[in-house]
């Protein structure tokens, strides 16, 4: 009787130890990553509200009714990394295939941040709107290794237009 009890306790402890070594760090990185991500998203939402007045559009039409005073290129770029939890999950999902939802948040973050920086640039130039908005996504560190690096780089650019005050 005591033998089986000891065996069960042993099994439970060994499973616990294995879980602590494998899942423990993952959970830690998940928490750490989530913390920074939430902070960044809060910041993004805050700034997006502030800069809602600057319109940006992928079309290249300029208001024909108003006179254009000045034009210029504006750009915004950002490089966002991902935490080890995301990379681990992504490499696991890669085995079975399917939607890698963990990488959607970094992409979203990077795109919105790049757009915000472009808008800030436009604001510095006292522009009224940004037309012909384009976005380019790439990766500096090629993800050919077994574990994806999950580094997203985005350049957002467009032409800032300032209309003459009538």
């Amino acid at each position: 009787m005591e033998d089986t009890l000891g065996l069960i306790i042993g099994i439970v402890f060994s499973i616990g130890a294995v879980l602590l070594v494998t899942v423990g760090p993952l959970y830690f990185w998940y928490k750490v990553g989530k913390h920074f991500e939430n902070k960044h998203f809060a910041d993004i939402i805050e700034r997006e509200k502030k800069m809602i007045n600057i319109a940006f559009t992928p079309s290249d039409t300029v208001d024909p009714e108003r006179q254009v005073e000045a034009i210029g290129m504006v750009t915004g770029q950002v490089v966002i990394g991902s935490d080890p939890f995301k990379r681990k999950i992504a490499s696991l999902v890669n085995l079975v295939g399917g939607r890698i939802s963990v990488f959607e948040a970094p992409l979203d973050r990077a795109r919105r941040e790049a757009i915000l920086r472009m808008k800030e640039h436009a604001l510095n130039l006292k522009a009224d709107e940004v037309v012909n908005f384009r976005m380019e996504t790439m990766s500096i560190c090629g993800g050919k290794s077994a574990e994806p690096l999950g580094i997203v780089e985005v350049i957002a650019y467009g032409t800032a237009i300032r209309y003459a005050k009538s």
Binding site: W29, V32, G33, F36, E37, H40, T75, Q77, V78, V79, I80, G81, S82, D83, P84, K86, P106, E113, I140, L149, I151, E153, I155
Partner: peptide, 23 residues
């Protein structure tokens, strides 16, 4: 520095700078 920062899943400022300079 970038690989250390990549542990926290934040912005990699060094690489953003690099991108900016190249552009």
């Amino acid at each position: 520095m970038a690989s250390i920062k990549n542990f926290f899943g934040g912005e990699l400022t060094g690489y953003t700078e690099l991108l900016n300079e190249s552009r």
